[in-house]
Design a protein around this nucleic acid. Sequence first.
DNA 1: TATGCGTGGCT
DNA 2: TAGCCAAGCAT
Length: 395
Amino acid sequence: MSVRTPADAGHAPNANLVNPLASANLASSSFLYAELSQALLNWYDASGRDLPWRRTQDAYAIWISEIMLQQTQVKTVLPYYDRWLQQFPDVQTLAATAQQTVLKAWEGLGYYARARNLHRASQMIVERFNGEFPNNFDDAMSLPGIGRTTAGGILSSAFNLPLPIMDGNVKRVLARLIGLTVPPAKALDQLWEISAQLVPTDNGRDFNQAFMDLGATICTPKNPACLLCPWRTSCQAYQHNQQTQLPISERKKSLPHKTIGVVMITNNQGEILINQRPEQGLLGGLWEFPSLEVPSGRSTLNAIKKTIPQNFGIRFKLPTAIIQIEHTYTHFKATFHVYQADLDIETETHRQTANSNGAAIEQRWIKLNQLDQFPFPKSHLKMIQAFRATMLPRD
DNA sequence: TATGCGTGGCT
DNA sequence: TAGCCAAGCAT
């Protein structure tokens, strides 16, 4: 007899996949959990990775690493982590820093709400928790940017608490271990329960790190190294040679495409016009060059010439094409058509205008050598590079 | 519960 | 090489 979770309803199960752990009474399997946990800890002693945030028990440093590692690979995080701790060695330093400086340190890492939340949370820690990162689950969860997995990751690593985690690695490992016949997103309650059962009460620190290492180095999305896996004799996917079919993935929707017109406007003072994006939403708080989305079928150049002067209170001379840039975001693709134009006249003197959505934006003329003081999205960093190569050729 | 939110590594 | 996916969270 098998137990069906409500999440299974409406999803066609693959009859070739078996799911004994999922259909067993979880509480009666505690002996199996203990064996699995110990086997993983033994593997970790011999084969775990040496990562910088494992060399410290400073909750602040561990917190920073956990936030940076959200949806971001270890290799990408390493240089940012080192630089960050140099620049902001403790929570008081971070709390006392201007948000723009924090965003600049995060520039290029993506998901910029993480940086804004880190900054806000640091100020909350100073005010509410006397400058010490909280050592309990509820207080940690009260901080912006910290959800259940990140709280478990930080508190297990810093204070050795036996709290479960549920990141992409754990989902994949468990889906294979139990032969999960639905996408992990449809069985999260069940997976959390197993993760919680597996964490040893006396060694949450090493166990959670080992769990993620197993997923990152052995139980990888493609070509898992099953022969090196400490769980292979218990793994339903391995036993039935289904490790490449699991976990079952959700069908991805194809991304819509947008055309973005951009103008890099310069004046005769050696300055260039930039504006700050609204705090909320995509690339919030970062700076960019005046831009607009071009409706399909319309001329990018005409759209720029009509709309940018209205939004920014300026007029410019005939724009020149500099470069086209392709960029893929999380939920759409974009082609940037980038132009340069000389300022004609400034029709308004104020520096606070509205974009096409009506949201207030700040705009500034800055010297070209000040560009590296402002946080820009990756796409605009490429524009700066192209601008320098085109407009300021070296001789 | 579904969607918005960046960028880069890897195959 | 185009697409998948990464130590998820907020709403």
